[in-house]
Computed example of a mutant assay.
Amino acid sequence: MQRVLIQNTISLSLKKMIGTKANKILCIVFIVTILTTQAQTDYKADVHLVLLAGQSNMVGAGNYDELSSVDKKRIENISDRVFLSYNGKALKPLSYFNNKPSKKYNFTKRFGPELFIGLTLAEANPNQKYVLVKRALGGTSLYGAWSPEWSAEKSNAVEMDAQRKKIKLYELHLKDIHKTLEQLKSQGKSFKIIGLTWMQGEKDTNSELAAKNYRENLENLINHYRKDLNTSKLPFIIGQVNVLPRKYKPGVDFIRNAQIEVGSLDERNTMIKTSKESPWNDFPKHLDNTHYNTIGQKRLGEAFAKSLIEKIKLN
């Protein structure tokens, strides 16, 4: 309806204004202004949704207690308008999640990139509300558990245990997203999905089969998200993996190069570049040389958010 009214306005104005050269110039300026206003109006929504998906570095191993008091206050200040649904759980204000202390991660308050994605976006847009919908499970493959065309055969070929061999993460993420959208609809809120952040691939580096098919599988994943969510212009932000080589030595290069290629396929894709080798000064890690530590997770979230801000300008 709004588009029709704008088109009618433009049509009537054209008839009135076209005549002299000066009026033609004014007419062009008028049309550009109207179309710009239309684009801005179409983009406005009560809630902006950000989708997060991946494996262990998307789960996150940041220690909330290591954050500065300034960062904690910043998060507290925006928590009334940034909400998170994690692995199908109910929406809650953006914050840490509970961690069972272990020898590897001996702390109780844990976070992933969502914390600084939400914070960075919210501070950049002080009047906007956000909902983040995250689905992540460590040690899972795009070839298997994350495949939109999941099969037991593919999953059994690459996944490491009974849980991961059976789980269908893409399907579950879609359910999470639609559940959230229905909740927003029931509250009478308008919404827009503004992008997806993807931090995954470490598992696929370990298998020749998964690594050599990663580029095709990542393209397929992006196409499925855009089609299944009816968002053909969905920005897709890829975090480049930088795990050390394991069983299949060339796997890291296969995945990193595939992510570079897919990240440049169209203007709404992009990739966050990471250093390939230790000491990981760009995104610091824990001593396992695999998982980002508190600083690494903070920087990863900020990098995802800044890329999203750039990409959503294209819509």
Rank of each mutant, 00 (worst) to 15 (best):
Q2P: 00
Q2T: 06
R3N: 12
L14V: 02
K16C: 05
I18C: 08
G19K: 08
A22R: 15
N23R: 15
I25D: 13
T33F: 08
A45W: 00
G54E: 02
G54A: 02
G62F: 03
D65N: 12
L67Y: 07
S68G: 10
S68N: 01
D71Y: 05
F83S: 04
F83D: 03
L84Q: 04
L84V: 11
G88P: 02
F97W: 12
N99S: 11
R110P: 03
L115S: 10
G118K: 05
P126F: 02
P126E: 11
P126I: 13
V131A: 05
T140P: 04
L142F: 04
L142R: 05
K154R: 15
I167W: 07
Y170M: 11
E171V: 03
S186A: 14
L196Y: 14
E202S: 15
H224Q: 15
D228Q: 13
S232G: 03
I237M: 13
G251P: 10
I260C: 02
I260P: 00
N269P: 03
T270A: 02
I272T: 08
K273S: 08
S278H: 01
S278V: 09
N289P: 06
T294Y: 07
K298Y: 09
A305Y: 07
S307W: 06
S307M: 13
I309K: 15
I312A: 01
